[in-house]
Amino acid sequence: MHYLVFIILAPWLFLQGKRVKQNTPRLPEAAGPRAGVSGSGENLSLLIFGDSAAAGVGVEYQQQALSGTLVGELSPHYQVNWQLLAKSGYNTQRAINMLQRSLSATPSLHFDAVVVSLGVNDVLSPLSAKRWIEQQRALIDLLVTKANCQTLILTRVPPMGDFPVLPQPLRWFLGKRSNEFNRYLENVAAKDQGFTLLDFGHQLDASAMATDGFHPGELIYQDWGKSAAALLIKAKG
């Protein structure tokens, strides 16, 4: 149904998208270290991987972002050897290419746990949900077979229908499209026990999001990081 609406309203939706891109402030990635060792106890190698949300766009420092919250929650339980590999604007295919380059440069690279944030830039592109899920499968395979990931957490595409920066009907359309992507991902999760799906957790209202109305704010990052940490701790037993 939403694709029928898209065909009818395509010129208007493209115009709205262009205006949003022109008028929305471009926030930088969070400043701070992108690798380190924290805590004590059993070793846990951790990768935070993906797009601008993984990179901490929306807060000033990595300590306030997903990486800082996640490492902070895990440090009382493990010695966390962590790395952040993320880039603003990256879709799934570009992220796969980035990971392949890292693995080629360091063949011994491996991670006990990986937390992934991808999908928003794919939803914004012409890519079909069917093609996207093929790319997600390729990413899962790469992380499990080449990076030796034991515990893999994929974050659901956030509900873009709640992004305050988006005008209607563009917000409605992208909300339907992000829901479609998540349904495909849920279908894969139902058949594949090799990864866990995770929600952002905190409702994406204007008060919880960054000043651009598009990226997570600190409260969302905290909730997201704590939820991911709880899953990792449970998986490690």
Results as ranks from 00 to 15, higher is better:
M1I: 13
L4I: 11
V5H: 03
I7N: 11
A10R: 10
P11N: 06
W12F: 11
W12H: 12
L13R: 09
L15V: 02
K18G: 08
K18Q: 14
R19K: 07
V20E: 03
V20H: 07
K21E: 14
T24D: 14
A30T: 14
A31N: 01
G32T: 12
G32N: 05
G32A: 13
A35R: 15
G41V: 05
L44N: 06
S45M: 06
L46W: 09
L47K: 08
L47Y: 00
F49A: 05
F49K: 04
G50I: 08
S52T: 15
A55I: 10
G56W: 08
G58A: 03
V59K: 05
Y61C: 08
Q63K: 13
Q63A: 15
S67W: 00
S67M: 03
V71T: 08
L74E: 04
S75V: 01
N81H: 11
W82V: 07
W82S: 12
W82Y: 15
W82E: 14
A86H: 02
G89Q: 07
L99I: 02
L99E: 01
Q100R: 11
R101N: 12
S104Y: 13
P107F: 04
P107E: 03
P107T: 09
L109Q: 04
F111W: 04
V116N: 03
S117D: 14
G119C: 09
G119S: 03
N121E: 09
V123E: 07
V123A: 06
L127R: 14
K130Y: 01
R131P: 04
R131H: 07
I133R: 14
E134Q: 15
E134T: 13
Q135A: 10
T145Y: 05
A147Y: 09
N148R: 10
C149V: 14
L152K: 08
L152F: 09
I153F: 09
L154Q: 11
P158S: 14
D162K: 10
D162I: 01
F163I: 09
P164S: 10
V165E: 02
V165I: 12
L166C: 00
P169T: 15
P169A: 15
R171N: 04
W172V: 10
G175V: 04
K176N: 15
R177M: 02
E180T: 15
E180N: 06
E180H: 14
A189Q: 13
A190E: 07
K191P: 02
G194Y: 00
G194Q: 15
G194M: 10
L197S: 02
L198R: 05
D199Y: 01
H202V: 15
Q203C: 00
D205C: 14
D205P: 07
A206H: 08
A210Y: 10
T211H: 05
D212S: 08
G213E: 07
H215T: 08
P216M: 06
P216D: 05
G217E: 00
G217V: 03
E218N: 07
L219Y: 01
I220E: 07
Y221T: 08
Q222S: 09
S227G: 03
L232F: 02
L232D: 00
